[in-house]
Nucleic acid binder design. Structure first.
Length: 156
DNA sequence: GCCAACGTTGGC
DNA sequence: GCCAACGTTGGC
């Protein structure tokens, strides 16, 4: 099963917020590569919830795709920061999914932690200058991240 | 189709 | 707050 990583700024919406609201539309993504990843996400797939622009940055929990890709509502809302007047209504340019909380990490698995893990050396996340906000995660990366904080990927 | 200018992301 | 990296825009 594919896994994913979702970036969010905890000052805006962190993993605790996801637990609080129970489910959250993942909208406002305005990058084609990230969008293509959203479109590939299937219901039930698991996502690492990553805190960016934080002190410190790192993975805070696991989320699950609860609704698959569908048109992002904000692209047609003129009052939204994410309004895209050039998106054709008959062929919406941007997509969103919905996610639900699965498990909070017992501790934040920081970017520094990840950089120190052999399993994460190839991930775009640990490379400088990667701004992609929705990215695929390999099974090895996923399992090693959970195992590093004492969680078992098979018992989620 | 190229590329300079600009805006944004995101680590530090 | 700074700035490197990178995506997008728009003139040509």
């Amino acid at each position: 099963m594919p896994h994913w990583l979702l970036k969010s700024e905890p000052d805006v919406f962190g993993y605790p917020d996801l637990e609080c609201v129970g489910r959250e539309p993942w909208n406002g993504v305005r990058n084609y590569q990230a969008r293509n990843n959203l479109r590939a996400m299937q219901v039930g797939e698991l996502c690492l919830f990553y805190h960016s622009n934080a002190k410190p940055n790192g993975i805070a929990g696991v989320a699950r795709v609860s609704v698959g890709a569908h048109p992002d509502n904000l692209q047609f809302d003129p009052l939204s920061d994410y309004y895209d007047p050039k998106s054709p209504p008959g062929d919406p340019r941007w997509s969103m999914v919905e996610v639900q909380p699965v498990r909070a990490f017992p501790r934040l698995l920081t970017l520094d932690d990840l950089r120190a893990m052999p399993e994460w050396q190839e991930s775009p996340l640990t490379r400088r200058g990667t701004r992609l906000s929705v990215l695929p995660v390999t099974d090895t990366e996923f399992r090693s991240a959970l195992s590093a904080v004492g969680l078992d990927a098979d018992s989620l």
